[in-house]
Amino acid sequence: MKDIDPVKALDDKVERLKKDVKSLGIRIDNAQTDAAQQKLSTTNQFRDTNRKITRTGDRVTELAESVHRLERLLVALNRKVRASETQKADFDTWPEVPDSLVATILAGQEAYARKTFTQQEAKNTRKAIAEYDRAALAAIDAADALTTLPAHAEALWRKKYREWRTITGRHRPELPDDDTHARDTAAKAAGNEAVARVRQTIRDRIEDAVARDLLFPAWFENMLGPAAPPGKADDWLHTATDVVLYRLLHGITSPADALGPAPKEQGHRRDLHDRLVVECADYRKP
C-alpha cells in the first residue's frame, strides 16, 4: 500500500535509514572486536615462536659445549688407546746431537747478536781513540803546568784548568778488535752449519714418527695439534722442527709446555719464541 502522505513516507525512510546505520555500527563494532582478537592471537603466537627460538638457541649452545667436551674426551681417549697399543715418539732425548754441537749453534747466535764493526766504523773509532789519546796527553801536560804555576797567575790557572777539564768528562771508545770480527764470522758459519745438521736430524725423526704413526709427546700435541693440517704438511714440519730445536737449545724440559715461559730480555730467542707461538696457534685452529 502506497503511502500518500509525503511526510509520513519521508519519516518511514528516515526510520529505515536509522536502522541501516545502527546495523552498520553493530557490524563495525563486531569487525573491530574480531580484528583485536586476531591481533592478540598473532602477538601470542609471535611470543611463543620467540620463546621457542630462544630455547633452541640455548640448546644449540649446550650442544656445542657438549660437542667440544666430547671432542676433548675423544682426543684424550685416542691418546690413551694409542698409548696402550702404539709406540711413543721421543722428541726429548737427542744422543745424535752432542752438547758441543748445541754450543756451536749458541755461539753462532751470540756472534749474530754481537754488534759488528764495519770497516768505516772501525776507522772512525780508531780515529776517535787517537784523538782521545792526544787530548789526554795535552790535558796531562796542562795539569802538569798547574803543579808549577804561582798562585797569583790566575789567567794561566784558568786556561790550564780549562784544558784539563776537556778530558775528565770523556770516555775512551772501545778498540775494535780484528780478531773478534774474524772469530765472529767463523762462529756464524759454524753455527749455520750446525743448525742445518741438527734441523735435518730432528726433521727426520719427526717424519719417521709421522710415518710410523707414533704417539707424539704431550707438549708436542699441545703446541702443534694432533697432526699436520691438510695441505700444510711442510710448513707444519718446519715449525715442529723449530719447536723441538728451541727446546733442545734452551734446555726446556717441561712435559706439557713446549716452549716454556717467554724469555724476558729482547733478542733472537724472544723473537723466535713469539714467532713459534703465533705459528703454532695457526696450526691448532679448527
Binding site: D133, A136, L146, H152, Y161, T168, R172, L175
Partner: peptide
Amino acid sequence: PGSPDFPALLAATDKEVEAVLQARRDVE
C-alpha cells in the same frame, strides 16, 4: 790512555787537580 787503570787514575788525578785549585783559592 790505553791502560785499563786509566779511568780510575784519571778520576783520582781529577780530585788532586780540584784540591790544588782549592788550595790556590785559599792562597788568594
